[in-house]
Nucleic acid binder design. Sequence first.
DNA 1: GCGCGAATGGAAATCCTTTTCACGAGGCCG
DNA 2: CGGCCTCGTGAAAAGGATTTCCATTCGCGC
Lengths: 365, 365
Amino acid sequence: MGNLFLTGRGMASIIDVARLAGVSPATASRVLSGSPHAVSASTRQQVEAAAEELDFVPNALARGLLKRRAPIVGVIVHDITDPYFSEIARGIEDAAEASGHLVIICSSDRVPQREESYVRLLRSMQAAAILFAGSGIRDAGLEEAAARHLSAMERSGAAIVHLSPSFRGPALVGVDNVAGMAAIVRSLVGMGHRRIGYLGGPERLYVAADRERGYRDAMNEAGLAVDTATVLRTTFDVAGGADGVERLIRADAGVTAVACANDLLALGALDRLTELGVSVPTAISVTGFDDIPGAARTAPGLSTVHLPLRDLGRAGFQHAEKLLSGRRPHRRELPFDVVLRGSTAAPRRASRLEITAPAALAGAR
Amino acid sequence: MGNLFLTGRGMASIIDVARLAGVSPATASRVLSGSPHAVSASTRQQVEAAAEELDFVPNALARGLLKRRAPIVGVIVHDITDPYFSEIARGIEDAAEASGHLVIICSSDRVPQREESYVRLLRSMQAAAILFAGSGIRDAGLEEAAARHLSAMERSGAAIVHLSPSFRGPALVGVDNVAGMAAIVRSLVGMGHRRIGYLGGPERLYVAADRERGYRDAMNEAGLAVDTATVLRTTFDVAGGADGVERLIRADAGVTAVACANDLLALGALDRLTELGVSVPTAISVTGFDDIPGAARTAPGLSTVHLPLRDLGRAGFQHAEKLLSGRRPHRRELPFDVVLRGSTAAPRRASRLEITAPAALAGAR
DNA sequence: GCGCGAATGGAAATCCTTTTCACGAGGCCG
DNA sequence: CGGCCTCGTGAAAAGGATTTCCATTCGCGC
C-alpha cells in the first residue's frame, strides 16, 4: 500500500498531515498540539482524520528543541535495585506519567564521576527536571562540577529537587532523618536498653551523617555513653550489615541492641546473627530505617522507622512541577513513623541489672 | 560577569563556541562531535578551549532531530518495585550507560492501556530502542495498537527487543520458562512428592502460560495427575501467593508441595503458611521461580529457579545495539539453574506411603 | 455603503546541530 | 609547469514542530 502523502518511508510529519488535510502546517499544529488559536470545526476534523490516517505521532525532539525542554525527568538513585530507591522512583513515575513526562533512571552506584556523567547527559537531553533520590556524597570534585551543571540548568528553567540532604543543604522534599533515628533509638532506650550499638552508612553520605547524629542525640539525651567501639560505619547494603554486626558482636562490648542506619544493613545483621546462633530479640535487639517492602517479612519482623517512600517520590515530582510553572514552593517535610515488630524487645535480665537497682528488680520479679 | 559571547541567558550553543573560537559552526561541530573529518590541531585546541570556557553541553535534542534518533532506550516493566524487574532494569542500565544511552523506565502495572501510552511516548521521543522486560499480556486491543507502533518504529530503524514471550512469539533474548518450571517440578518429584499443587500467575500473561505448561509437562512426564482443584491462578504478587496457598490448603487435596510461578507468590505463600502454623518444608514444600534477591533470606530459604536477571538485561541491550547497527542477531537463550534451599524436602512418611511399597519402606527405615 | 473587529488560515522565522557541497591552498607526479 | 589530489575550512540546507506576524473574509453597527 503506502500512502502517497507520506514524504518517505519514515514516520509521517505534521507537514504530511497538513498536506493530506489540505491545510498549512501551522493549522495542523494548532489542532494537534491543543493550541488556543481558533480553528473551525470542519478544519479541525479534517486534520484529525488525516493524523489518524497517517498514524501521526508528533516528534517530541522537534517540539523540545523549540521549547528548550524535553518532557523527561531524570532521577538519580544510588541503585535502582535497592527497594528504597525503587519505591521512590515508582512514586515519581506515577506522578510524572500523569503529566506526560517520562522518567529516566540513573544508578550512580555512589560513584561521583558516574553521577556527574549522568547529570551531564540529562542536561544535554534538556531534561525538564532532575530529582536526586539518593543522598549527596561529600566529594569536592563532584560538588564543584555538580554545582556548575545544576545552576546552569536552573538558570535555563529546569527544576532541581533533592529528596535527601546534599551539599546544597537539607532536602527540598524529605523526611527528618535526625529525628527519625533519634525516635527509634529513644524507643530502644524506653525498652530498657543502655548499651546500644550503631551500624552506620558510609561516612561521605550526608544522610548517613544525619542519621548518626540522631543516634548520638538520643543517646546523649538519655545520658548514655557512645562508645567509639560500638559505632561502626560500613557500606549501605546487606553485606555491610552482616559484617558489621559480626564485628560489633566480636568486640564484645556487651551491647544489647544495635540500631542500623537503614533496613538493608539491618537485614544483613539479622542474617548474620541467625548464622551465628545469636537469637533476636532475646540476645540482641535490631532496628532498621526506611521500612522497605520486605522489612516486615523477616523472621522476626524488623522494627524500623517507616518512611512514606512512594509519597516522597510523588511529592518530589510535584515540587518539580511547581518549580517548572514558576512558583516557589515551600520545603516539604514528610512524616515518619516508628514501627515496632519482633526484632526488638526489652534486654535480658542480666543486662537490666546493670542499669536498674538490683534489689528492686529482683524483688519485683 | 556573563560572557559576551553568550547569545542569551540560556545555555551556550555551538554557534557561541564557534564565535569565541573564531571558526565556523561546522568546524566547531567537527571537533566537538568527534567527527572523522580532519581538523588542524591548532583549530581543534581553540574550539576545545572555547567549549570549556563556555561550559558547552551539546543539545541532544537538536542532534537527535537530525539523526532521527535520541540516545535513549525505553524499558517496559510491570512494576519497577518488583525486584525481578529492577534487576533486569539495572542490567540494561549498565549496558546502556557504557554506550551513552539513557534508560527510561515505564511501569505498566500490567494495564494494556498504560503500556500503549508509554510506547507512544517513547515513539514520540524517537527512542533508539524499546525493551519489553515484562511478559506480554494477551489483549486484542493492545496487541493491535502495539503491533502498529512497533512495526512503525522498526521501519524507522529503532530496535524492539522482548525479554519475555509476547504476542510476537518467544523472547528474542530470554530463558526457557517451560523447561525451568519443568526442571524444578521434576526435582520435587524426585524428592518423592506426588501431589504437587501449582500457584500460577494471571491467565493473560504469556510467561505465566509458559510456566504452567512446564508444570503440566513435568507432571505428565512423571505420570502424575494434575487435579484442577490444585492448580490456581492468581495475581503475580505476594498477596496473591498468600491467598493462593490458603485456598489450596483449605481445599485439602492433600498436596505435599506447591510450585509457585514466581518468587513473589512463593514469598506470600511462605508468609501465610507460617501464619497458619503449617511448617515448611515438614508439612509442605514450596518452590519459587526467578531467584530474586531476598529469596535466599526467607526462613527457610526458598528453593527456586535461578535466572540470571541482570545478565538478561545486559544481553537484551546488547541485542538492541546489534539491531541498531544493522546486524541481525540470533535469538539468545540464557541458562537457568534449579537451586534447592530449605523450603523443600521429601514429603512426610504418610505421603510417601501412598506412592511407595509400604512394606519396603517400612523395612528400610 | 463604509469601516472595524473577530475569526480563520498561511508564510516564515526559530530552536541547534550535523552534513553535504564547494572552495582555496598547497603538495606531488608526470 | 600543469593537473590532480588532499587537507582544512566555510556556507548552507535539513530535520519537525511551534509561533509570531500578516492577510483575508465575514458580520455587523452606524
